[in-house]
Design a protein around this nucleic acid. Structure first.
Lengths: 333, 333
DNA sequence: GGAGTATGTTTAAACGTTTAACCTATTATA
DNA sequence: TATAATAGGTTAAACGTTTAAACATACTCC
């Protein structure tokens, strides 16, 4: 790689000091610099194709203008959609984004935090895995600005942006009840994650039979979903609706329902959580809870930039989710 | 944010020079440093929770250990899957990844290149949009290490990693022909992108009627796909198979085929390009060309690291794609 | 007892910027 | 005419590392 042009090269080229070059290129001390010299410097910068070295700037200013984004897996559509919004918002504010995937592991999360701290990120946006209370406390202790997204610990005061999962699940269940469903099953992960358990709680609080909850191991999704669905359908009084609390669960669930040849929505109504292409392609397009992705992403960046500037106040944002009603839950006349 | 601990703090704490601290923490001059002092320094680093400042290191070493990744849209599953592989490979080699989405725009690509150059990335992995020959020449002129992924200009010698799109499309068409399809339609974008046109060429070179090609405007996907499909099916001698050359085209196509109530595969065989969840959920799981994502990602990082070290030789890698055959193209007995 | 060689540590410059403080010549003011 | 203000610059230090070179001190060898 060719040697890059520095402010020093420009200074030598024009025959002035580096300080003057810096002042001109940053439009500082405007009144105090002669038009001619300023013009010469600007021309030289252009001629030599000068590009400021952000690393040097960062070292001096103690701001890297970089945000660290930690998600479970950037390959997951939920994560990558959010990442895209965050990228755009960050860029509009002069920030870049370095990302890392935690694979839902607390240790990897810690490693990524360290790695990104070494790289002097100005702050973090993090979708936390389970069992990361320690990491949150660590960040608080260091005083690093950070915003949690999607997942947070209600007992630990932090900046966060999330949806009201309890209410979102409520919307789904109320919709099913209004459409005449009597026995509603809920499929969720076996997890301690607050946001997922809120979804279950929001659902079961509206149900008479609270035993119709299936917990799926995250590393045996298809197998467990299949078992749960079987259980729901094979009991004396089978369910007439299923609420899946995540994307992956819905997709798995639909696959296995498809294989069994169960008719949707006549025999069974379905509501999912989060969008997927596949919901459109399913013969009965799937009703689902839609999170306001753009708002989540934008708000998280906004809160983070606030935190970077202020340092003090804690801000939390709870957004509403929307129920997108389609054929999988409504019997058309 | 609290002041971070620097090497200077450790030096003061232990009562030695910063140089010594640096030598110890980097395990340099091993033989020449007394065990006791080394131990003291290491303990101090731990006690004070020292984290090296990668920015300062980069400035000194002129290596940022950062890769710039430019894709069309990180929210697109193809991009984010690749991003994930690249993230992992980069991390295994001590590199971080800063990403940017070009939205298939040449200007945005140029902006991102500039931005990331300012941030002193050591090299680029780029999936180019149309009309970016200039950008490629710019990068070559600067001598910045870079690797093109998925898309490249055959006329411009550069490092690249891609699949053999011509052959991949050939596999799809041969499969359809072998399964008795006589009139095969091809749906692609109206584009100058080499890799997509290779797919069309690979298909039509095997077809008798080369007029059955539909070009879809990228900003009117659903509308145009719908028209093309209509045209294919409503002519005197309608098509009995359609090959979609991209993911988005397949999904759009299937949606509209679904709406028309066309029976797959009896009435119409379908082959897509790239994987989607939705292909599983479709009542007739979709046959598709599978790109070796992991290999693409890994190879791109490998080539880039080579380029960063060597600077000279140009390396190109063409990988084979695989046809995943399922129900949408085969009539089961 | 002086040269040579280990051993252990420090000094200082450098990476590319930014920026407070300083300098000098010219012009305005009293 | 002396002095202050202004215009237009430069100097030098700093950010946190790394690292070649210099410096001390002790030990070895004939």
């Amino acid at each position: 790689m060719k040697k890059k042009v520095s402010i020093k090269d420009i200074a030598a080229y024009v025959g002035v000091s580096t300080a003057l070059v810096s002042y001109v290129l940053n439009n500082k001390k405007e009144g105090r610099i002669s038009k001619e010299v300023a013009a010469k410097i600007k021309k030289a910068a252009l001629d030599l194709n000068y590009q400021p070295n952000q690393i040097a700037r960062s070292l001096k200013s103690q701001k890297s203008l970089t945000i660290g984004l930690i998600v479970a897996d950037i390959a997951n559509p939920y994560s990558s959609q959010i990442a895209r919004i965050i990228e755009d918002e960050a860029q509009r504010n002069g920030y870049s984004v370095i990302f890392g995937s935690s694979d839902e592991s607390a240790e990897k999360t810690q490693d990524l935090i360290m790695l990104l701290l070494n790289r002097q990120v100005d702050g973090f946006i993090i979708a936390l895995p389970e069992h990361t209370e320690e990491q949150v406390h660590y960040l608080k202790r260091l005083g690093v600005p950070f915003v949690l997204i999607d997942r947070y610990y209600p007992a630990i005061p932090t900046n966060y942006v999330a949806i009201d999962n309890y209410e979102a699940a409520g919307k789904a269940i109320r919709h099913l009840i209004e459409n005449g469903r009597k026995r509603i099953g809920v499929v969720s992960y076996q997890t301690s994650l607050f946001h997922l358990n809120e979804r279950v709680k929001g659902a079961t609080d509206l149900l008479e039979d609270k035993s119709l909850v299936g917990e799926v191991r995250i590393d045996h999704i298809y197998e467990d979903v299949s078992n749960v669905v079987n259980r729901f359908l094979s009991q004396p009084n089978p369910v007439d609706a299923i609420f899946f609390t995540t994307n992956l669960l819905s997709v798995s669930g639909l696959k296995c329902i498809n294989e069994k040849g169960i008719r949707i929505p006549e025999q069974l109504a379905i509501v999912g959580f989060d969008e997927t292409d596949s919901f459109d392609l399913f013969y009965a397009p799937v009703t689902y809870v839609r999170q306001p992705m753009a708002e989540l992403g934008k708000a998280s960046v906004k809160l983070l930039l606030n935190a970077i500037e202020n340092n003090d106040a804690i801000e939390t944002i709870n957004l509403d989710a929307e129920l997108i009603i389609r054929n999988s839950s409504v019997i058309s006349k």
